[in-house]
């Protein structure tokens, strides 16, 4: 819930109005012409740069989150998943996931649930592989899944050395996205 903490203003009506005027945390916008698609995080930060955007389309944009710990080899694994979701390859994705992948305009690369480090901290190199889609990186994936309506929550145990596991509520599927 959006809120304002103030040590200056005491008028509660004004403060509530300010709280309501805060941009929502996640807002995906697309500008026309050649400008890159911009993912705005409230009024605080935007992740995007021209070299990460392959194609620019008008809104609405649909993105698919591929949550992997983005280290060297893992990006190839994430791309394999992405291509599978788009209908290339033979197995691994259910029909719902494959449909979502096929309809997506781009892909969020995430370094996985429970490990929300920026891209440059998790050893990310510039991709040597062609994704064929708009890409955003540097993402706390579970947050984005949550914001986009995905119902996941962190499990209390079963962490091991890998990423913290999540469970999909509708399918009861438990997953640890780190390969």
């Amino acid at each position: 819930m959006r809120g304002v903490v103030s040590t200056l203003e005491t008028d509660s009506d004004k403060l509530v109005a300010k709280a309501r005027s805060i941009p929502r945390w996640m807002e995906l916008t697309s500008r026309k012409s050649s400008a890159p698609r911009v993912l705005r995080l409230g009024n605080w930060r935007a992740f995007s740069s021209a070299d990460e955007v392959v194609g620019v389309k008008d809104e609405p944009a649909r993105f698919h989150v591929v949550a992997y710990r983005l280290r060297h080899q893992a990006e190839h694994s994430a791309q394999t998943t992405w291509r599978r979701l788009q209908g290339h390859g033979s197995s691994g994705a259910d029909s719902g996931g494959r449909r979502a992948g096929a309809e997506a305009d781009g892909v969020f690369l995430s370094n996985g649930p429970g490990d929300p480090q920026p891209w440059h901290l998790c050893g990310g190199q510039h991709s040597r592989v062609s994704w064929g889609a708009s890409r955003f990186r540097d993402l706390p994936g579970h947050r984005y899944r949550d914001c986009s309506g995905g119902k996941t929550f962190k499990l209390r145990f079963w962490t091991s050395w890998r990423n913290h596991p999540v469970k999909q509520l509708h399918s009861e599927e438990r997953s640890r996205r780190t390969p």
Binding site: M1, R2, G3, V4, V5, S6, T7, L8, E9, T10, S12, L15, V16, K18, A19, R20, I22, W25, G42, N43
Partner: peptide
């Protein structure tokens, strides 16, 4: 130092402020 938290649904909490002075906007978790 008095400080106030106002939420978007109109609920207001008043208390004591420490640390920096000013006004900050964000999502409350």
């Amino acid at each position: 130092m008095q400080a106030t938290l106002a939420l978007e649904d109109g609920r207001v909490f008043r208390g004591k402020g420490y640390g920096a002075k000013g006004e900050w906007h964000g999502e409350v978790v």
